[in-house]
């Protein structure tokens, strides 16, 4: 097996792809909540991605991503037997699980891919774990069967914004309903778009339940060197890569985080528009 070789690939829906990649150095010590930084090839940028799982015996890690940006489109071009240029990790602090009894993990959209290993990891650690999976519509639903198998059918709630599948509700509404129905959580974990995480953490605060948010940010090295991922936590500057990626949801300055997520917006739009329509992104210069 070659370093960073794709060993398995499955399409979850039109955009979402699940890959297993041989990266034994990463897999050996990987824990739920940690991330990697990858490069598709010599010309690619370095992007961080939370691992969707790992197998330290096989030496593989799992990545689930939506092929919607230039780099993720290029990732989707890599087939089984082909290799990534670089995968480095595990980075960031693992999810804190000690002492927890009952947790509700709330995933939004592609965030469910990252919430999945986290929820499974919690369950494996003996935590009574519930999962609220939220999607825009039926076509985007992923990992429902996998989650139900791991957590139990009665521990997984799928909701869609338009009601085309599962219950018609936003994740925040579903979470609040569960709390009102008497479910006891001693922590709520939010993984998804910042705006969703912000509202999930507000619901948690409303019921005096501690919340944790898994943040994503621009970063280069993932070891604290560039400072690109800095965010305001409780008024202090923190680096997502070394201090996170998970933070106390009640302390996150969400407006600051959302503003900073637009840092390279224009260039990303340009890059996306300049993916070749014939090849789907294979480079001209390789």
């Amino acid at each position: 097996m070659k370093r960073f070789e794709v060993t398995w690939k499955r399409r979850l829906n039109d955009n979402m792809v699940w890959m297993k990649i041989y990266a034994p150095l990463v897999a050996k010590h990987a824990k739920p909540g940690q991330f990697i930084i990858l490069r598709t090839d010599e010309y690619g940028e370095r992007i961080p991605l939370t691992m969707a799982g790992h197998n330290s015996e096989d030496g593989t890690i799992d990545l689930i991503y939506a092929a919607v940006g230039r780099t993720t489109m290029l990732m989707d071009q890599i087939e089984v037997g082909e290799c990534f240029a670089d995968i480095v990790g595990p980075l960031g602090k693992p999810t804190h699980m000690e002492g927890l009894k009952s947790v509700c993990v709330v995933g939004g959209g592609t965030g469910n891919a990252l919430a999945y290993p986290l929820a499974c990891g919690m369950k494996d650690a003996g935590v009574d774990t519930y999962m609220v999976e939220g999607f825009k519509n039926k076509d985007l639903v992923i990992l429902e069967d996998e989650l139900k198998e791991h957590l139990g059918d009665d521990h997984v709630f799928v909701v869609t914004d338009d009601g085309s599948y599962g219950e018609k509700a936003f994740t925040t509404v579903k979470l609040e309903n569960l709390i009102k129905e008497g479910y006891q959580f001693d922590e709520i974990v939010a993984v998804g778009p910042p705006i969703m995480m912000k509202f999930v953490c507000e619901i948690a605060a409303k019921y005096n339940i501690p919340s944790v948010a898994s943040l994503t940010a621009y970063m280069i090295d993932g070891t604290g060197m560039c400072g690109g991922c800095r965010c305001k936590i409780g008024g202090e500057d923190k680096f997502v890569c070394v201090d996170g990626p998970e933070f106390d949801g009640s302390l996150v300055d969400w407006d600051d985080l959302m503003k900073r997520s637009n840092y390279y917006k224009e260039q990303e739009a340009y890059d996306r528009a300049h993916v070749c329509r014939l090849t789907g992104g294979v480079r001209y210069n390789d």
């Binding site: 280069i220 560039c226 400072g227 690109g228 305001k232 500057d237 503003k259 900073r260």
Partner: peptide, 19 residues
Amino acid sequence: ENLIGVCSANEYLTRINLM
């Protein structure tokens, strides 16, 4: 310091030199 357009020299130089 968290406005868009503020970065560390480390980040700016790494994007240019390494990447």
